[in-house]
Nucleic acid binder design. Sequence first.
DNA 1: GTTATCACG
DNA 2: ACGTACGTGATAACC
Length: 525
Amino acid sequence: LHEEEIKRLFSDFLQRKSGIVGHGLKKIVRSLLWENYSPPNIYMDTQIAVYLLNPAEASYALPSLVTQYGERNFTIGEKTEEGQLDLDGGPQIAQMEAAQEALCASVLVEPLQRAIEEQNLMDLNNEIEIPLIIVLAEMEYLGIKVDLARLTGLRDELKNEVEEIRKIIHELAGEEFNINSPKQLQVVLFENLGLKPGKKTKTGYSTNAQTLEKMKDDHPVINHLLKYREVEKLRSTYGEGLLAVVGEGERIRATFHQTVTRTGRLSSDAPNLHNIPVRTDKGKVFREAFIAKEDWALLVADYNQIELRCIAHLSGDSGLIQAFEAGEDIHTSTAAQVFGVSPSAVSKAQRERAKMVSYGLIYGMEAWGLAQRLGIGNKEAASILNSYFGAFPSVKDYMESTVQIAKERGYTETLFGRRRRIPELSSPNAMTRSLGERQAMNAGIQGLAADIFKIALVNLNHKLKEKKMASRIVLQVHDEVILECPKEEISEAEEVTIEIMGSAFAMSVPLAVNISSGITWSEAK
DNA sequence: GTTATCACG
DNA sequence: ACGTACGTGATAACC
Ligand SMILES: [Zn+2]
Ligand SMILES: [Zn+2]
């Protein structure tokens, strides 16, 4: 057979009507794309099936899964002795392992499919997760372009800055030590300089930013330490870290994991493109290094307050729904209701507090946690929470029933049926139990937002191809998509993206989308 | 490998 | 009486 014939036959196999099965297919699809194959028709990814059945699965190693989910007695052949085949068998070993993997996956298909059906996870699997494999593989394959000169410049600047701050700190501390070592830093601060320690950690006294912030007035070195931490973080994680993974075409290609989080979200590693700085001006500049290729532009679309909208929809709270329908700033509307003033009379502080309450809600907070965050007393926090739930009573009902149902079943379920076991709910330890309650409240909210976002990704990718557009999704960050578009296609891509994201799921509140474009990720914000 | 810290949604 | 906001990943230090 000629190479061309082999390629054609393999293509036919990949497109077979009944679909292909594999374990962790995204990686294979990515390789196929590099070899110019079209994305395959997928029947099942056993790894994703297992994830849907239990998103907390400890390991996706096939032998253990076959033991756990397989039905027939099935033993995997002896692992190939490397020494034995070492001389001529490199490719043979790889073939053997691939064959074993295929065999394991095929053994798992039936029992997994049955379990997926039994737990009503068919739609989630077939309509969302399986199509998403291709979308993510294409994003990983494309990667996002970076401005190498800009990135190098940022790294160099930060390097110099770290060095300068290091000298000042050693001067002020009166000794040389490794500032990166929390252990050495503790000795310097709390023993040698005699400063008063604040919070404790497992092993000693905390030196984190929150603690240092409170010690600012105690010694001049503290401010420099805070600055050092900020700059060193940017230098090491983003300066050096990103430069080290720039690949072909001056593009960075991350891996997006579909079977990692307990809630249904995606994660990103090598590198993590989900935590590129944005909250501080100094960190934000790294987004200037993420760019579109020549004559193209980046389009950034972000769901507005998707998790709060999920709460509104799930709880059916008329007050919260109205607030979103009015289309005003949600934190201001909330503050007006909670503090009993007109929206125009809401102070900055009141808005900030309402915002904290709303975020706390997503995380299942209690009065105690809110008090810590707002730096107020337990009583005052409880009273704020009381007026919040007074204004939005159905939200309280929803939270309570969510926990109740989770306790009865031992797991939570999102609106799309995504399950998460929460064994913490039956822990003998009260602290662990309330952790479980917070996780239960959060899972339905974060999980629904993730499901909606995944639908948007699948639909958007499909629509771009259907319309024969050249624009492509190059990145996603939980509720935000970044497209790379030919400049002349920008306005069309903008229309399509807003339409697809806004209609991903029909809720009792609108799904608002913020969108903008530019040459860099920073500019498109 | 575990711990502390800190970047994001 | 107690004391944690939920979900991730990278880095450096240290055992
Ligand atoms: Zn958003
Ligand atoms: Zn965003």
